[in-house]
Simulated scan of single mutants.
Amino acid sequence: MITPDRPGGGTHAGENFVVTFAAHPDRVGQIRHMLRAILRYRRLEHLTADAELVASELVTNAIQHAPDQRPITITVDLDEQWLSLAVRDHSADWPRPAEPVPSQENGRGLLLVGRLAGSWHCAAHTDGGKTVSCRLPVSDPSPARRLLPRRQHTPPLEADGSGARQSASDRPPSQDASLSQS
Rank of each mutant, 00 (worst) to 15 (best):
H24T: 15
S91A: 10
V132A: 07
A51C: 10
E158T: 14
S169H: 15
H12R: 15
L58E: 04
Q175C: 04
I2W: 04
A92I: 05
I38R: 14
A117V: 01
Q166K: 11
A123P: 06
M34S: 07
L85Y: 02
L44N: 06
R70Y: 02
Q181N: 08
T73M: 06
Q152Y: 06
D5Y: 09
V76K: 07
R88F: 03
E99Y: 14
P71E: 09
D170G: 12
H65W: 11
T75M: 03
A168P: 01
S119H: 08
T131M: 03
H46T: 10
A23G: 06
L58I: 00
P100L: 12
D89I: 09
T3H: 08
P172D: 12
D5R: 11
E80L: 10
Q69N: 11
P143W: 13
H65C: 13
I63T: 10
I38Q: 13
A86M: 04
V101C: 02
P156A: 05
D127W: 07
S178H: 09
R32N: 10
R171E: 01
L78M: 06
R150W: 05
M34D: 12
D89W: 02
S178K: 11
S182T: 00
C134A: 15
E80R: 13
A22V: 15
P172S: 10
P7E: 06
L111G: 11
Q175P: 00
H33F: 12
T3N: 04
Q104G: 01
E99W: 10
A62V: 12
R42A: 04
A117T: 04
P67L: 11
P141W: 00
A66F: 06
L111Y: 04
T48Y: 00
P95G: 04
E52L: 09
Y41A: 14
H125D: 02
Q81K: 13
A177N: 10
A98H: 13
L78T: 11
P173H: 08
Q81L: 12
D79Y: 05
L47S: 05
D170I: 00
P141A: 11
A98E: 13
P25H: 06
A37M: 14
R151C: 00
D160L: 11
A37Y: 15
H46L: 07
R135E: 00
D160Y: 11
V18T: 15
